[in-house]
Design a protein around this nucleic acid. Structure first.
Lengths: 346, 346
DNA sequence: TTTTAGCACTTGATACATTTGAGTGCTAAC
DNA sequence: GTTAGCACTCAAATGTATCAAGTGCTAAAA
């Protein structure tokens, strides 16, 4: 168990190190401490904190930096979210102040705002699409055997893809096939749609289409795109950070990690808490040892939950970041709720 | 005027410097030269080449590297495109060997292939869209006052955007407006479409729509997207190159340059030659002083001309790159021609 | 006139020693 | 339990010597 003085010292070490990026020595520390003690006392306390594994030295006679364990302790017991600067709030509000025609635009914009506000890499995931329902599927002929398949969900997601029509499909049977899809599947959650696509739908279609595989491929493809969780990542270049990146190769592999949504999704997983910080070695990926991931979930009622996250160096200013994310979740949820209700009104 | 020996020496300096990245001294040079002279002679020649401004030293007693002027001379008089490695050719062919539903997919893929083959940043621009003609415009209702506007051109470009319908538009007048657009404008080059959108079309529409601005906005927006030249850039991270990048800030501004298609378009301009190399200080942008841009145009007959480009350090292996681009232009043109004819067949 | 051999000179790189400053741990006194 | 004082450590900066690569120049050879 830590004494009160040790808590103050640990907290101050975290703060100073985050501010300066330099190891914190007893003298610098002393200037900042509220209590009236000598540097020797501070040094003694630091030895004890080091024994507990909460801080560490970079070399024998250096100042101390928080260890990962120290950060963990700080985050679990000491961090106090700071209130958001008025200017930041203004940026959020003005950046969101435009009309959106698609839910994805809002999600993408939120990643952009967050990364520009924090100078870190921001990741934004829209409200879960899993629970969204199919509201319509149609094929629009574009000429030259090209068709655009369009799929709409009740979450406002619109997915489209362009295909060359397989030879065996004539427009009459296509019409019928589309009617079947719409009759049978509209209103169902996408997960159910996917399930039925594997069970009874092929047989139903077979009545009108000789071989329904061509059509099923088209529909399945667009459906897959729509059901896919899509991450929007912004501020990738903020990963370029002398503190965390040692060599060029590391940077390149980091980029490809961040570019591959699958890997990123796996990495982030499903956060337990509303706001959660995971430190480098708690993440599964080795490349991120010096990084830290702050995730925050937000709630848009019937439309499910979404997530925003920040990826940055372990020595982030957590109190500011957590405070910011906490406000941002609400702003974003509000904006999305607005979007849905507005859309219903008009 | 350069003597034959000076030409050989200059060419060899370029080759060795490109290979090793190190300044070339008289001794190294001597080993590679076909003729039988002493190092002192080589040194004397180098002094003359330096007097002409074709090569330069990095410090008083260093070997020589080609100056920009030297590269210019090399490119204008000495470079010989090398033939493409069989393995490279195989990569190109297998990478292109899939079916594409949109011309843009081919363009994007070509940038990807080129960058992976060269380890430089590749830029690909599809056949000029300026000359393409409008083949159709339609609005597809998605429910909840949302519509998708789709615009198709004869070049195979399909552009779509989702809008919330303005209140004042009812579906009847919309139908009529769309019919007018299709009757009046289909078949015209996009440039003409844009011109008429500013002249007589608003009046025509006014007969059916009280205030046609809402509709015109929608159509104009999609049209603008379709008429826009779109660059596909791949291998951005190859810009990370110790030879050319000094500090982190420079890298960041480079990235934002490459990310902004407008700037990039301005930068590249319209090449005069089939294959053209522009060196850093011939480019308008200061950030690119240490870079070099190789552009190659390709021709797809009636469908206009396109362009591919490589952006890399000034010390690129030009003979390989030029040889590669020369083959690639043909492969790409072939693939695109294939795409158009195939599409007509089916 | 051109080429060559030889030599003095310059420079960056490398290795090594020295100094400096920030910081520590420990001990003995308070 | 706290503090002053001191010896000690280490990274970083600075200085010094050496080496290798390469140059320019001169005078002799071709």
């Amino acid at each position: 168990m830590l004494t009160k003085r040790q808590l103050v010292i640990l907290k101050e070490i975290v703060r100073l190190y985050t501010e300066s990026g330099q190891p914190v020595g007893s003298k610098k520390l002393l200037e900042q401490l509220p209590m009236h003690v000598s540097s020797a006392t501070v040094r003694n306390e630091m030895v004890r904190l080091e024994d507990m594994g909460l801080i560490e030295k970079t070399h024998l006679s250096s100042g101390r930096i928080p260890s990962t364990k120290g950060y963990r302790y700080y985050l679990d017991h000491l961090v106090e979210p700071s209130s958001v600067a008025a200017s930041d709030l203004a940026v959020i509000e003005t950046s969101f102040d435009q009309s959106y025609h698609q839910i994805d635009q809002i999600i993408a914009q939120s990643a952009k705002i967050l990364s520009s506000l924090t100078s870190y890499t921001a990741i934004s995931l829209g409200p879960e699409l899993r629970d969204s329902r199919l509201t319509g599927f149609r094929l629009v002929p574009l000429g030259d055997q090209q068709v655009m398949a369009i799929l709409v969900t009740d979450n406002g997601a619109v997915e489209n893809q362009i295909f060359t029509l397989p030879h065996e499909l004539d427009s009459d049977s296509l019409e019928k096939a589309i009617r079947i899809i719409n009759d049978q599947l509209v209103g169902l959650p996408l997960t159910d749609v996917i399930r039925r696509l594997r069970s009874d739908i092929p047989q139903l279609l077979a009545q009108y289409l000789g071989t329904p595989t061509g059509f099923l491929n088209i529909f399945g493809n667009v459906l897959k795109k729509a059901a896919q969780e899509r991450f929007y990542v912004d501020g990738k270049m903020n990963l370029i950070n002398p503190a965390t990146i040692k060599n060029v190769d590391q940077l390149k592999s980091l980029y490809s990690l961040v570019d591959q949504n699958d890997d990123l999704a796996k990495l982030i997983g499903i956060p337990d808490q509303t706001i959660e910080v995971r430190l480098g070695d708690e993440l599964t990926n080795n490349l991120l040892r010096n990084f830290s991931l702050i995730t925050a979930t937000y709630d848009v009622g019937d439309h499910g939950k979404g997530m925003i996250a920040l990826l940055g160096p372990t020595s982030m200013p957590y109190s500011r970041m957590i405070g910011l994310l906490d406000v941002f979740r609400e702003e974003l949820a509000k904006k999305i709720t607005d979007y849905y209700t507005h859309r219903g009104d008009e």
